[in-house]
């Protein structure tokens, strides 16, 4: 969903696993939809880790634990913190729709797979790349206190672990930052540049 980004301060949900692939984020059997119903995808986010075969919540999965089961809303659980190489594998944008649909606005990891990272950005979910150290410390902070908050300041491109005060800069190009802060998407931009496309084609 198109929404403007500024400063997000929220508690987090930790997922300290590496190489979380998009088949886990949203299994293939949920890809048969022909509409972009984010709520449907959000309900099935991490489906096979979250629910057993009978559809009962698995207590060992973080979303179902008392400290983290509250659904995301302003200031609460709007940030997912994941191990490195998050979103590897299939290009399915349904994974980004599921993350957005569940209510996450930011995903923090030390490393994202390329296609998924673009998919998050195109759905107004901000992927924030932090150092391995920052990530390990953040997991430790959340383990010590599940109420640990993180502040993501898009205009200044900083991310802060409020439990320790540690701050890092994160990368985002000026164009994409402008798009996120103004709720504009790439198609808006491309349509404005149609003359350049035609000029390119006739010069080939």
């Amino acid at each position: 969903m198109k929404q403007k980004f500024d400063i997000i301060q929220s508690t987090c949900i930790p997922l300290p696993l590496e190489n979380v692939d998009t088949d886990q984020i949203i299994p293939a059997r949920f890809l048969k939809a022909t509409t972009r119903d984010e709520r449907f995808f959000g309900d099935n986010l991490f489906r096979d880790w979250r629910y057993d075969k009978q559809g009962e919540p698995k207590q060992d999965f973080v979303f179902n634990q008392p400290d983290f089961c509250e659904a995301p809303h302003k200031g609460i659980h709007e940030i997912l913190v994941a191990g490195k190489n998050f979103g590897s594998g299939s290009s399915r944008e349904h994974a980004a729709w599921a993350i957005a649909g569940y209510g996450f606005r930011v995903v923090i990891s030390s490393f994202f797979a390329d296609i998924h990272k673009n998919n998050e950005l195109n759905n107004f979910v901000l992927p924030v790349v932090v150092s391995e150290d920052f990530l390990a410390e953040l997991f430790a902070s959340i383990k010590a206190d599940p109420q640990t908050e993180v502040r993501v300041d898009v205009p200044n491109q900083t991310v802060t672990n409020l439990a320790t005060g540690r701050t890092e800069q994160f990368d985002i190009n000026g164009y994409k930052k402008y798009c996120l802060m103004n709720a504009l998407d790439d198609i808006d931009f491309l349509l404005e540049n149609q003359d350049k496309i035609e000029a390119y084609e006739s010069a080939r």
Partner: peptide, 18 residues
């Protein structure tokens, strides 16, 4: 490989932002 939003970009403009 690209995501669905990017598929839409290419349909609309035969271009992609990468």
């Amino acid at each position: 490989g690209i995501g669905t939003s990017e598929v839409e970009m290419v349909m609309a403009s035969q271009c992609i932002l990468q």
